[in-house]
Design a protein around this nucleic acid. Structure first.
Length: 961
RNA sequence: GCAGGGGUAGCCAAGCCAGGUCUACGGCGCUGGAUUCAGGGUCCAGUCCUUUAGGGGUUCGGGGGUUCGAAUCCCCUCCCCUGCACCA
């Protein structure tokens, strides 16, 4: 058994002592990669391990290719979750405390410290065994730790201040209103983490259509303002208490719960008085100015928006059903003073035309689903179906004045805007589903925050710069480009400040803090100078310093005099930045494409326009035994546990081989254990090879040429794979496939001397191919192989094209195929054979075969002509029937053969007899049978059942006896 | 709804862009055998059905089409996952 932990430590120490990964600009070409720094709200687990192993593997690969590689790391402290977690500790949230104490082993008595967000963050950033720093060190990452940063470092804040000065000056920061989830009891915005129920619920924007009743306004909430043309009546719930209330100088009638919502959303709301609904009255529809009745309906929910609903039965299943019900019980309605005549006269008014539906989509769907009552839950589904189809495929009917034939998707905003402009409508936000409740138990409302600061990603000039940058970038996987493009088109103002959390205050309005997705867009540039900044007083940093470093503005001497920073340091920083930038690859999760990764491009395009990033790799998510990982619930495997149990290299190579970076990754313990055993086996095999005596020069036989050809095939494939970040494919070739080939070769080698020489040759290349994945193991074996340098800084194996021998590989495949055929027959027959005779096709059959090849490739051909041609050209005296049968077999087999392979067969001109002769010992070992090889027309052959006549090229006849 | 991704044998998963070498890489699991053999490890073999001579049949979400030939190309359809903003 190998002691992985000892090997890990030995080499991690050696790399550190040698400062192998602490890099400075030099003559070599540079290669710069960063991964999104972790948000340090919990332990470093195997999901993070995967995220950071990918750049490390590529960094190691590039380093071996001769690049000067920079791979830095930092920690994200900014934002609310860390503060939120600290708060949960302070409030002694039982569930959360249990995770911390029981799952993460934090002693009860130190919980007090965790109430401090800084302590909390630091604990998981670098202090504890669960920390990112330790996890990354234990995995052997080739990080330049001198450049480590956190986003609350005073130096970093200076950098962010510079960044936002530039954005401010460019006019890209704007002020506006913004809806947030708000707890009226805490008086604070709430994040999803703060919710008791209603996590992930979306906010929808209702249009309030102002129906008029004398001096009163009944604001009916709708998501579909364009249907105002089809209104037949208004719905109010007779069981709901409505109130009259002054709203922005008008008298609105709404349900009671709506009052507070309107107030939070910036309306000037006065005193509320009870309002008695008089169902005998009629209201005036906005825009169309039609008079319509008010009818009672129980489906109207007082908690949804205003509790007032307009009725469009032709296009809303709820409205249609409610209307039918009303018409079925007009007598009852009469008690409320409603004129039955009027109700009976109401008819759905269709205003939208949808292909595939009749006059009224709502009626179609209701009938199809067999819905009879307004309390039927299927109405939800029916509504969704109608809305979806009308929005996607519908257009306004030609009678709708001003919107004739307009697609519904356009009419929706157009009608809304017209009505808003005429003050016939207003806006109200509401949750898409309820209830939404704060942890404190209070219902959450939507508040419109005034004075919110936004980054104006809608700015067309900025957008086009970003798009130009994107167009020049390499994206992995390529499919992500569509997503980036879509995001760029759709992105508009992004709220860039927060009231709570750690971070850098906004210089223009210090009550606000730059939020976390806005202070992490160009920190890759900061890494290039981070280690030098650490030797400088944060207080001495100003915009001029950063302008000089990042934009070559100003004079180093003058800046030095103004700030007291040594001129040499300023120049060194400028040099570092120029050398390392632009960034070669940014690696991050694909869920960050809609924000962080796109922001990264935007900010570079604006602030460092000469240094557009060159590429982005987007990862899939990580799951654990099929379950979503969650730090706050403790459903994770910490790096620290994994490394202790399996060793760094098993974890690394497992993470890299289980799926490609952009696919989802599932950590499965049983497979990790299998991986560890494989690595164990590899280690013993390597030791065995190293211990093989001597290395005398010797002739290379067919098996040796095959082995070296296969090796080169794998070198080539692995190199191509790593260039494209395909870690899984690279491991498949570098580890598993070479292993398979070596195993076969060891049984096949022509002489012990050739075997030793070949295997040592293979091992030398093999270790280098594996070094990016399993660097500790490879260093150890590299040393044992007698090398005195680090494998981490040795050369990546070059592809030796001339050793790739497709002919040899084809011959070996042929041997394998023959063995398989014999084994198949052996399995199927009853008797227990002791020997096998193999009869390979004689010369004339090959000639005929090549001839068939010519004919078959074109598709249809004249078989009779072929038969005649072969017969006369080769001067054969066979029975026509026999020849015909053979040729037909050849045709059938060639028909199924790919063009490429046919070319190979023609090129190789394999000598079946000598190939099988040479391999006969191997065949004997594999089959447990004595093996004899004959050419089919050999008169002296042993052939008791006259099988040889049936041989065709590449498909020898076989006799078992 | 919008955008993106995906459905492959017991499970995970490759192949699909550039149609034939695909019963379909690899791994896990399972079965059998070997091993100075502890039911562990390692090694070998097998793992859709069927077959006493290398054969045959049925498979790649469902349906249809193109082709001598389709997991791979085209059309339709069903289902699943992710993101959609103040959450990093």
């Amino acid at each position: 058994m190998v002691n992985w932990q000892d090997i890990d430590k030995k080499w991690q120490d050696a790399w550190r002592e040698d400062q192998l990964f602490e890099v400075e600009p030099d003559k070599r070409p540079k290669w710069y990669v960063t991964a999104a720094f972790p948000y340090v709200s919990g332990p470093c687990h195997v999901g993070h391990g995967r995220t950071y192993t990918i750049p490390d593997v590529i960094a190691r690969f590039k380093r071996m290719q001769g690049f000067n590689v920079l791979f830095p790391m930092g920690y994200h402290f900014t934002g609310t979750p860390i503060v939120g977690a600290a708060k949960r500790v302070a409030s002694r949230d039982t569930k959360f405390i249990n995770v911390l104490t029981e799952r993460y082993g934090i002693p009860e008595e130190s919980l007090k410290d965790f109430e401090n967000p800084h302590f909390y963050a630091n604990y998981f950033a670098r202090e504890s065994d669960l920390s990112y720093r330790k996890g990354m060190e234990w995995l052997g990452f080739s990080i330049d730790w001198r450049r480590e940063l956190t986003t609350v470092d005073p130096h970093y804040s200076k950098f962010i201040t510079w960044q936002y000065h530039k954005l401010w000056d460019a006019g890209l920061i704007v002020k506006g209103k913004h809806p947030v989830k708000w707890c009226t009891s805490d008086g604070n915005p709430v994040t999803d983490h703060d919710l008791l129920e209603g996590e992930g619920v979306e906010t929808v924007e209702f249009t309030l259509l102002k129906y008029r009743l004398g001096d009163y306004v009944l604001p009916a909430a709708t998501l579909r303002p364009e249907t105002v043309f089809g209104v037949t009546n208004l719905w109010l719930n007779p069981n709901v208490n409505y109130v009259a209330v002054q709203v922005d100088g008008e008298s609105w009638v709404v349900s009671e719960p709506a009052i507070e919502k309107l107030r939070q959303q910036g309306y000037n709301v006065g005193e509320a008085k009870p309002f008695k609904i008089d169902f005998s009255q009629e209201v005036e529809v906005p825009l169309t100015h039609k008079k319509v009745p008010i009818l009672p309906a129980v489906f109207v929910d007082e908690n949804n928006a205003t509790g007032v609903v307009g009725s469009v039965p032709a296009h809303a299943p709820y409205d249609y059903i409610a209307l039918i019900e009303a018409q079925q019980q007009v007598d009852l309605l009469a008690h409320s003073g409603i004129d039955p005549q009027k109700v009976m006269k109401l008819e759905p008014i269709s205003l939208i035309e949808v292909p595939g539906f009749g006059e009224s989509p709502a009626i179609d769907v209701v009938n199809k689903m067999g819905i009879k009552r307004q309390t039927d839950h299927k109405l939800e589904q029916a509504t969704a179906e109608v809305y979806r189809n009308e929005f996607a495929k519908g257009k306004m009917r030609s009678w709708v004045q001003g919107y004739e034939d307009m697609p519904v998707s356009e009419a929706k905003t157009a009608v809304r805007e017209e009505m808003l402009a005429d003050k016939e409508a207003a806006t109200m936000y509401e949750f898409a589903s309820r209830p939404v409740t704060c942890r404190c138990g209070t219902p959450v409302v939507i508040k419109i925050v005034e004075d919110q600061w936004f980054l104006n990603y809608a700015d067309e000039t900025w957008k086009s710069k970003a798009k130009k940058c994107l167009a020049s970038m390499k994206l992995i996987p390529p499919e992500s480009r569509a997503q980036f493009e879509h995001t760029m088109d759709w992105l508009h103002e992004w709220p860039c400040t927060r009231k709570i959390g750690m971070g850098t205050p906004a210089h223009w309005d210090p009550g606000w803090i730059i939020e976390s997705l806005s202070d992490s867009t160009i920190y890759m540039a900061y890494y290039t100078i981070s280690h030098i900044l650490k030797t400088v007083e944060a207080g001495s940093l100003n915009d001029a310093v950063f302008d000089y470093v990042f934009d070559a503005k100003g004079d180093a001497g003058k800046i030095s005099a103004d700030t007291g920073i040594e001129k040499g340091k300023l120049e060194q920083m400028r040099k570092e930045f120029e050398y390392w930038y632009p960034l070669d690859y940014r690696v991050s999760a694909n869920e960050l494409i809609p924000n962080h990764l796109t922001f990264h491009i935007f900010h570079h395009a604006q602030l460092l326009p000469k240094y557009c990033p060159r590429g982005i790799v987007s990862f899939g998510i990580a799951i654990l035994e099929g379950q979503k990982m969650s730090s706050s619930k403790g459903n994770i495997i910490a790096i620290n546990e994994a490394v202790k149990k399996y060793g760094a290299d098993t974890v690394r190579i497992y993470l890299m081989s289980v799926s490609e970076p952009w696919q989802d990754m599932d950590w499965k313990t049983s497979e990790v254990e299998a991986m560890q055993r494989s690595l164990d086996r590899f280690y013993s095999l390597a030791e065995e090879i190293i211990a093989m005596p001597g290395e005398g020069a010797t002739a290379m036989g067919q098996p040796e040429r095959w082995m070296l050809s296969r090796l080169q095939t794998h070198v080539k494939a692995a190199t191509e794979a790593l260039e494209a970040f395909e870690t899984r494919r690279a491991v498949q070739h570098s580890f598993f496939m070479i292993m398979q080939d070596v195993r076969r070769y060891m049984k096949r080698a022509s002489t012990p001397e050739a075997r030793t020489k070949t295997l040592k040759n293979v091992l030398d290349v093999w270790l280098r191919l594996l070094a990016p994945f399993t660097p500790h193991t490879c260093e150890e074996l590299w040393e044992r192989l007698g090398n005195d340098n680090f494998i981490s800084s040795t050369e990546w194996p070059a592809v030796e094209e001339k050793k790739i021998d497709r002919g040899v590989e084809f011959s070996e495949d042929y041997v394998t195929r023959v063995i398989e055929d014999i084994a198949k027959i052996k399995k199927v027959i009853k008797a227990k054979p002791t020997k096998v005779c193999v009869y390979v096709a004689q010369d004339w059959k090959w000639k005929a075969y090549l001839k068939v090849m010519e004919k078959v490739r074109g598709g249809k051909f004249d078989f009779g002509a072929l038969l005649k041609g072969v017969e006369s050209e080769l001067g054969l005296r066979l029975h026509k029937a026999d020849l015909s049968k053979l040729l037909q077999q050849m045709v059938a087999s060639l028909r199924e053969t790919a063009e490429e392979k046919i070319e190979l067969i023609k090129g190789v001109k394999i000598d079946e007899f000598s190939v099988l002769e040479e391999a006969s010992d191997f065949m004997r070992d594999q089959l447990g049978l004595q093996v004899m090889v004959f050419i089919s027309d050999d008169q002296a052959r042993f052939d008791p059942e006259n099988r040889a006549v049936g041989s065709i090229p590449l498909r020898p006849a076989i006799y078992l006896g």
